[in-house]
Amino acid sequence: MASIDDVARAAGVSTATVSRALRNLPNVQPATRVRVLSVAAELGYVPSPHAATLASGRTRTVGVLTPGIARWFFGEVVDGAEHALRGLGFDVLLYALGSPRTDGPRPPVDPNVLRRRVDGTLVVGLPLEAAEVSSLVGLGVPLAFVGSGPSGQVTHRIDDVAAGALATRHLLGLGHRAVGHVTGARDPLSVWSPAAGRREGWRRALAEAGVDGPPTWVVDDAEFDLAGGRAAAHRLLAARPELTAVFAASDELAMGVVLAARDRGLRVPDDLSVVGVDGHPHGELVGLTTVSQDAFSQGHDAAVGLLGMVVGERAPESVTYPTRLVVRESTSAPRADRGPRR
């Protein structure tokens, strides 16, 4: 188990500074306090029960709102946040709303379940109505979003437009011109959803290449999982047999596209190239080309930043994380002899 000396060495400060930073005492520079919090979380340092808390009167609990943890991105973010918070002696109060395994619309966010029970709130990939955002702000505790979020709020996420463009440009660079897109169902809040950004990136990349992709090259009502991607790809490929490649808005959707191609007797990538977004570990099993993101770090950093806000530090409004293209066997140049599929 890490000691306060370990934290001090890793952070490049004295043990006295570590103690003062963790107890929210004065005479610690804001950047130093955040660095100490981050290092303590990374090393799993837990102050003794007799040490002063980050601030008196705290619940030492952070609320986490998410659609669920069954999907890879949500689970990774929650795991990263929990790792950081546990390392600083904080608990997670998890509320899963709108899980795909639940029939019907998700229940509205009820701020009363968090009132006086949490020191801050993380919202992970959950589209919220403006009134719901206002109700969380009204709790009077720090609030941050991971994966997506409205303007004016602290948000940790990737540039979804850039990710969609990167994936599509990879296919265009291989010589594909008929590039379809499979994405999730639209919602009233799609203006700040990852699905909307990735679709816009796809559209921009095609336009830059002089390709006029018709609306029928898109299926945008899929559930964001393997089964949803499979069903959507069947509809897309049946309607548009000229497509030689598909960009899917997540790796789970993309793996569903691969299965649909196999169902239809198509070879990946000879007959159809497929690329996704996420860096899902199961993607390697099917040789999936992907735009990879570090979801664990997004959750970890958002939690550390939220605790910085708890002790009075000012957080940046938006933190954007890098992505990288991981090329595997699911993409290649289109076959020169390939004719329209029937």
Rank of each mutant, 00 (worst) to 15 (best):
S99G: 14
V133M: 01
V113P: 04
R117P: 01
P111D: 06
P108K: 03
L122S: 03
P107R: 10
L122R: 01
P111F: 13
L97S: 09
V118P: 00
R101D: 15
A131S: 15
P105S: 14
L97K: 04
R115Q: 13
D91C: 05
L88G: 07
L97Y: 11
S99R: 12
V113D: 10
R106V: 03
V92W: 06
D103E: 12
V109Y: 03
D103T: 11
P100I: 08
S134Y: 05
L114M: 12
R115V: 09
A130H: 07
G120P: 02
L128P: 02
V92Y: 08
G104Y: 09
L88W: 08
D103W: 05
D110R: 09
D103K: 08
A131Y: 06
P108Q: 04
E132A: 02
L128M: 08
S99Y: 10
S135K: 09
L128N: 00
L88H: 09
R116L: 07
S135F: 11
A131H: 12
E129D: 15
A96S: 15
S135D: 12
V124M: 02
R117K: 13
P107C: 07
T121N: 01
R117D: 08
G120D: 03
R106Y: 11
P107T: 09
T102D: 13
L128C: 02
V123E: 03
N112Q: 14
G98I: 03
L128G: 01
S134V: 09
L93Q: 11
